[in-house]
């Protein structure tokens, strides 16, 4: 075991994938010479040369080039500097990458990964802070992953690169500096498996990415008040681990979903609707969600603090669920 930061775990996963598979190819804005705005690709160009390339600021064509490269033998890993810029890649992801396998009758897979950071908390403003993962989870053919810790960042990124289908790999900016254990010889994790990060009997809180830590903080405080909350880290949003949520619900009979993305039409809405259909008999209270309000992410630190869902909101929701 070694302690690494989240950003370093990403870097190690990329390095190991490049090392093990000559088809892996990294490209993106300022990822090669500078190593990316968050340092995730630092040093990789020195090690792997031309397989790690800086691109011009042309997101739409870079993403479509990833599709073409994947169809011609590469496993491209594209970095889109902020998730807000994913809006420029929508044709490539939605119309091309997601469709190819089905639309061409199963002739080919599109083994590409788009890595992109989401999330607020650093006063980056309305166009550098958004969590748009639900958009991609809505498109048949795409997978969407969002790790919450360094070990998962490594294992799930390895899995995403090895996966034959297009994956949107979302990294929360607030987590890059987070430290955690990474096992020696760690390899790819399974995509689509949730993990119980804290066991409890009174309520289930489902979260992903940085919101997992918000949920854990809330659970710690709730435990002092005598409420034992089970925290499930979803890890993968598309596909999501319905069985794990049902299994936990069968013990707790109460469900809260927490995420940093806007609540309306979000990942939590899908989980709530689905569990409402298949888990109704298990529920002792209405399913609740804690997520961001239907407002753009504001710039001022005070406004952003008011915007982001925090542990207090989770605590209040759990207390209401268990009342």
């Amino acid at each position: 075991m070694a302690e690494v930061r989240f950003g370093k775990a990403i870097n190690l996963a990329l390095a190991d994938a490049l090392e093990q598979d000559p088809a892996v190819f990294l490209f993106g804005e300022d990822i090669a010479d500078v190593g990316g705005p968050f340092g995730a690709t630092r040093g990789l160009k020195d090690r792997f040369g031309d397989r790690v390339r800086d691109t011009p600021i042309s997101e739409a064509s870079m993403a479509n080039a990833a599709v073409g490269a994947a169809l011609s033998g590469l496993k491209p890993v594209l970095e889109i500097m902020f998730m807000d810029f994913m809006t420029l890649t929508m044709d490539a992801l939605v119309n091309q990458a997601a469709k190819v396998r089905y639309m061409f009758g199963g002739q080919a897979s599109v083994p590409m990964v788009v890595r992109t950071p989401h999330g607020g908390g650093i006063s980056a403003g309305p166009q550098h802070s958004q969590c748009l993962e639900a958009w991609f989870a809505h498109v048949p053919g795409l997978k969407v992953i969002c790790p919450s810790n360094p070990a998962d960042a490594y294992g799930l990124l390895r899995a995403a690169i090895a996966d034959p289908d297009p994956v949107v790999f979302v990294e929360n900016k607030a987590l890059y500096a987070m430290k955690g254990e990474l096992a020696e010889g760690a390899g790819p994790e399974s995509i689509g498996k949730a993990r119980t990060v804290r066991a409890g009997r009174d309520a289930t809180v489902v979260a992903y990415g940085a919101a997992v830590h918000t949920a854990e903080r809330a659970a710690g405080q709730l435990a002092e008040q005598g409420l034992e909350v089970e925290v499930l880290d979803l890890r993968s949003i598309q596909p999501w681990d319905e069985a794990a949520v049902m299994e936990s619900l069968a013990r707790t009979h109460r469900l809260l979903i927490v995420h940093e993305a806007v609540e309306a039409f979000g990942v939590g809405a899908e989980i709530a609707a689905r569990i409402g259909e298949i888990g109704f008999d298990e529920l002792d209270a209405p399913i609740m969600r804690i997520a961001s309000p239907f407002v753009p992410v504001p710039f001022a630190p005070s406004l952003e603090k008011a915007y982001q869902p925090d542990a207090e909101a989770v605590i209040a929701a759990v207390r209401k669920l268990c009342a």
Partner: peptide
């Protein structure tokens, strides 16, 4: 073939990139 006008161009670009890298 492709139903999105202009999409063939960057897709071919990526394919050319694969030929070059390989």
């Amino acid at each position: 073939a492709n139903a999105i006008v202009g999409a063939s161009i960057p897709i071919a670009l990526g394919s050319a990139l694969a030929h070059q890298v390989r």
